[in-house]
Design a protein around this nucleic acid. Structure first.
Length: 498
RNA sequence: GGCCCGUUGGUCAAGCGGUUAAGACUCCGGCCUUUCACGCCGGCAACACGAGUUCGAGUCUCGUACGGGUCACCA
């Protein structure tokens, strides 16, 4: 038994909740991962506990440059600050598994000594890497379910072979009879017959632990009290329990969450073209909105309320509200959350966020981004929609005169031309070009002409925007465009209608 | 295929043996409005199926169907 273990334990505060988000650094953060992180964060912080980030990079072949940084940045953008992690350290570090390499072997050997694991010298390389076929898998697992010849090797003999330099892996010696019951805070008690458990590898030939083993060791060493992870791991949990028991360690609380799906049969996956966290952000979704939406995929606070800040979630989050069934990610609903969050922004916040998007198509310096932002805010679902919505400010698009025909406003091409002809001189006579004077002038004109406001406003808006749908009405657009450009566009309209 | 898990409207979901089975998104009407949107009002739409248990079942039990997970020296 490595004697520093006890020291390690004394560094962990007693009686406090400790959770961890333990992603493998793949180079991106997926939506499901964000949700797992969120739940882990909430469980810890709700009770004043500790939230830890641990990087699970035991697969050396999968190293991705900068992947850890992406995870760190995402967590920080989303406001989920961790108390211990690879970049900030902590009492039970390091927090990157590849840096804890030497930690695992002694524990695996301890298990061998205790007879709960064994050295295995079998060569299984043939069906390595490329072999993915069901047949290969079947034959491999068949082999494992049969008694591995190494399983019953006397411990001393194995030890000798190891010392002589023979390559080996260490496998867990799963019990062949009895049953193991796992208590999960979401799924309840799940009982598995031990004979269905395989002798999973604990330590790989390269000396690195497998994911499962590293998880057990690190969760214990780091004092994790609540283990949060996806349901894909639920069937290996009985093996975890057997390991914990072999060590004589306390079994943590398991909180298993079902996957976030693209549709009824497929998980959300980057491979299949589903957006990652970063994709969504660059599509103009707000981190807060995404976090809020994702929280509700698979968890419900029970009431009718749906909008929660991270702080507010902390107050209402309950593990009992987590659902067992998978949830399908619905982009439409995300959009709804996003527009709610956009509308809740102050005008300055929104202007700051929107300006870069506005400037993608509106290059004219005379046009105020803030003025556009003002009329845009209530009709913006996501930021990336903005350039296309405001492009007409820069340049009057080519448009079809059919746009002047609108039944509800009682306009057709003939009436529209009359309206524009009437509007031109009165607009020209305005001295102070502000919203009020434009408004008053046009309303007066409509009265004078004895037409409803819409009959006048519709053609004006079409003439100055060239679009059927615009952010804001005719008056705001006239104002933003400025007097000269407004008059010019109206003249263009008159010509088009002639 | 073995083992494990799940199943309330198109989607997210509330419900914990007695309800007219919430709410949100989407969609469709209507109102408001200078368009669209926002907002407000209204509408369509669900307990997978079959047996039990019970006075009574979306809620409990068992089967069936469908879906998911897992069965790697990947995580």
């Amino acid at each position: 038994m490595p004697n520093w273990f006890d020291d390690m334990e004394s560094k962990i505060p007693k009686g406090k909740v400790r959770t961890r988000f333990a992603p493998s650094p793949t180079g991106y953060m997926h939506v499901g991962g964000l949700r797992t992180a969120l739940y882990a964060y909430l469980v810890a912080k709700k009770s004043g506990g500790t939230f830890i980030l641990r990087i699970e990079d035991t697969d050396q072949a999968r190293f991705v440059e900068g992947a850890t940084e992406i995870i760190i940045k995402t967590l920080s953008d989303a406001g989920m600050n961790y108390d211990e992690g690879p970049d900030i350290g902590g009492p039970v570090g390091p927090y990157t598994q590849s840096q804890r390499r030497e930690t695992y072997l002694p524990y695996a050997e301890l298990l061998c000594e205790k007879g709960a694991a064994y050295y295995c010298f079998c060569e299984l390389d043939e069906q390595d890497e490329t072999e993915d076929s069901a047949e290969a898998k079947e034959s491999a697992s068949k082999f494992l379910m049969e008694d591995d010849p190494c399983r019953n090797l006397p411990y001393e003999d194995s030890k000798l072979r190891v010392q002589s330099g023979a390559p080996f892996v260490i496998r867990m010696k799963a019990p062949r009879d009895g049953a193991t019951t796992v208590s999960d805070m979401v799924f309840g008690d799940v009982t598995t017959q031990n004979k269905t458990l395989d002798d999973m590898v604990l330590l790989k030939r390269d000396g690195m632990p497998t994911y499962n083993f590293a998880n057990v060791i690190d969760d214990h060493l780091m004092g994790i009290t609540h283990v949060m992870r996806g349901s894909e791991y639920i069937s290996s949990t009985p093996k975890y329990n057997i390991l914990y028991e072999a060590f004589g360690w306390e079994i943590p609380h398991y909180i298993t969450v079902s996957p976030v799906m693209r549709d009824a049969q497929h998980k959300l996956s980057k491979r299949h073209g589903d957006p990652t966290y970063d994709d969504l952000i660059s599509q103009g979704y707000l981190p807060e909105a995404l976090l809020n939406y994702v929280a509700l995929l698979g968890w419900s606070p029970g009431g009718e309320r749906e909008i929660f800040t991270l702080q507010e979630m902390l107050e209402v989050f309950e593990i009992s509200g987590i659902s067992k069934s998978p949830a399908i990610f619905d982009m439409e609903k995300l959009k709804h959350f996003n527009s709610e969050y956009i509308r809740a922004l102050s005008i300055d916040q929104f202007t700051n966020l929107a300006e870069p998007y506005i400037r993608q198509t509106v290059r004219n310096e005379h046009i105020q981004a803030k003025a556009i932002a003002q009329i845009l805010q209530a009709r913006c679902e996501k930021l990336s929609d903005i350039p296309e919505k405001v492009d007409f400010f820069d340049e009057l698009p080519q448009y079809d005169t059919e746009l002047y025909v609108h039944k509800k406003s009682k306009t057709d091409k003939v009436i529209s031309k009359e309206m524009l002809l009437a509007a031109l001189p009165v607009l020209e006579s305005i001295n102070v070009w502000d919203v009020d004077s434009i408004h008053n002038t046009l309303i007066e004109l409509a009265e004078k002409l004895e037409v409803k406001n819409a009959t006048l406003m519709w053609p004006v808006r079409i003439a100055i925007s060239g679009k059927a749908v615009t952010p804001g009405g005719a008056i705001e657009i006239c104002f933003i465009l400025g007097k000269d450009e407004t008059l010019r566009r109206i003249s263009v309209g008159i010509e088009k209608l002639t």
